[in-house]
Simulated scan of single mutants.
Amino acid sequence: MSSTPDQPAVTGSTPGREQDPLALERQVCFALVVAARSVLSVYRPVLEPMGLTHPQYLVMLALWGREPLSVRELSETLALDAPTLSPLLKRLEAAGLLQRNRLPEDQRSLAVALTEQGRALRARAEQVPAQVVQRLGVDVSELEVLRDGLSRVIAAAGAAGREGAA
């Protein structure tokens, strides 16, 4: 794979580096970081007309799938900690896309629900996956295989983290 100034090469070989366990191009973490940045840059121009950043889009996806959700449930669903999630929710609430209310049964907990404007935005968002696939130029079946593989890596990393904490 060749590189451009914006996208470093993730694969390739430098003589003698094929066996080096510390070769940058052999690192899964490097490939994941570069892939994430690259894919997010494809989402940016698709989401901007909707007034959403990618993290805000993920919040909306979770709520379009099921609402209301407590902040805790949303945090777990998105694998985001509360200090990261809270400003996202505040911005989406200020934009009129969601509302946060105290749960009657537990005044310490907030329920997050979409507004009518937030629900209406879903119709525009339905075009996002197809636009991203088109911009990437990668077959949907390849992306599904990649997603499934990444899900296995995420689960394995989570298990390794729990084992390390025990």
Rank of each mutant, 00 (worst) to 15 (best):
P21M: 09
A120N: 13
P104W: 10
L88T: 02
A95K: 14
S70Q: 13
R17H: 08
S38F: 06
G149K: 09
A62N: 05
R108G: 03
L89G: 03
M50Q: 13
A160K: 05
P5Y: 02
M60S: 03
E76I: 11
L143I: 09
D148Q: 15
L98G: 02
L114V: 02
R26Q: 11
L89I: 02
H54D: 04
F30Q: 05
M50A: 15
S75K: 08
P45F: 06
V46M: 08
R135S: 14
L32A: 14
L78I: 07
I154G: 00
T115L: 02
R44N: 07
L63F: 07
V34I: 12
S109Q: 14
P68T: 06
P21R: 10
Y57D: 03
P8K: 07
A130D: 11
L22M: 03
E48T: 12
R124Y: 01
K90Y: 04
G12N: 01
M1N: 06
V140W: 09
S13A: 12
I154C: 12
L97P: 00
V34Q: 13
A165G: 04
E116K: 11
A166H: 05
M1Y: 02
V59W: 06
A95G: 09
D106M: 03
G16F: 11
A36P: 00
A94V: 00
R122A: 09
R100A: 11
L88V: 03
A82F: 14
V128I: 13
